[in-house]
Amino acid sequence: MHSQDNIPVPVLRLPHFEGLELPAYATDGAAGMDVVSAEDVTIAPGARHAVATGLAMAIPPGFEIQVRPRSGLALKHGISVPNTPGTVDSDYRGEVKIILINHGETAFKVRRGDRIAQLVIAPVVRATWLKVDELDDTERGEGGFGSTGGVVSLGN
């Protein structure tokens, strides 16, 4: 059994990964590991690209790797991960690619070796459906989008 603090993940470095660094935590308190690009690519405004990492991995059963944007790229350049968080399932063995989208106003150049996203390993809890004829009551009830407030300028 492994501690929740140290989950070994077998990683295969593909030929185009050569010379790059494996994903790593930038600080002791970091939740995500920075992953780098294994290719040069320019992403036009509004465009998306699945950026190669040059890595394939065997995530242990009961875990996933979540792919999250890097806050600096999002704030400074409008670069994000459109399916945030993206999920790499434990039974996937192909190359991990990071889907980036350019929400900015200018083309964005990704260079080989650039930190492009964060990888967070997380436990997966699987659900089973329990069919019922009615649900319990809550204070919120069927209140949906925006029903709990939060935008003062809109009077909510």
Rank of each mutant, 00 (worst) to 15 (best):
A50P: 06
A74E: 09
A31C: 03
G104W: 08
V132Q: 13
L130A: 11
T106R: 15
P15M: 12
R70I: 04
H103V: 00
D28K: 15
G46Y: 13
L73Q: 09
A30N: 03
V88S: 03
R126E: 15
S71F: 10
E18F: 01
N102D: 11
A38R: 03
T84L: 12
V11M: 08
T87C: 04
G86S: 05
L14E: 11
M33P: 01
R68N: 13
G113M: 07
A24Y: 14
Y92M: 05
V51C: 05
L130E: 15
V110E: 05
P15W: 12
H49D: 05
I43G: 02
N83D: 14
Y25A: 02
I99V: 15
A122S: 15
L73N: 08
L55M: 09
A38T: 01
L12K: 14
R126L: 08
V81P: 01
R68S: 02
A24V: 06
T53G: 01
L55K: 03
A24K: 14
P82A: 13
V67T: 08
A44Q: 15
Q66H: 11
P61S: 13
V110K: 10
A24E: 13
K131N: 13
I43H: 10
V41N: 06
Q66E: 12
V36K: 07
V51R: 07
K76V: 01
P45R: 11
V51D: 03
L12N: 14
G32V: 01
V41A: 08
P23I: 01
A117N: 09
A127F: 13
Q118P: 03
R13W: 01
I79W: 07
P123E: 11
P15S: 11
T87Y: 12
E64Q: 13
P45C: 08
E18G: 06
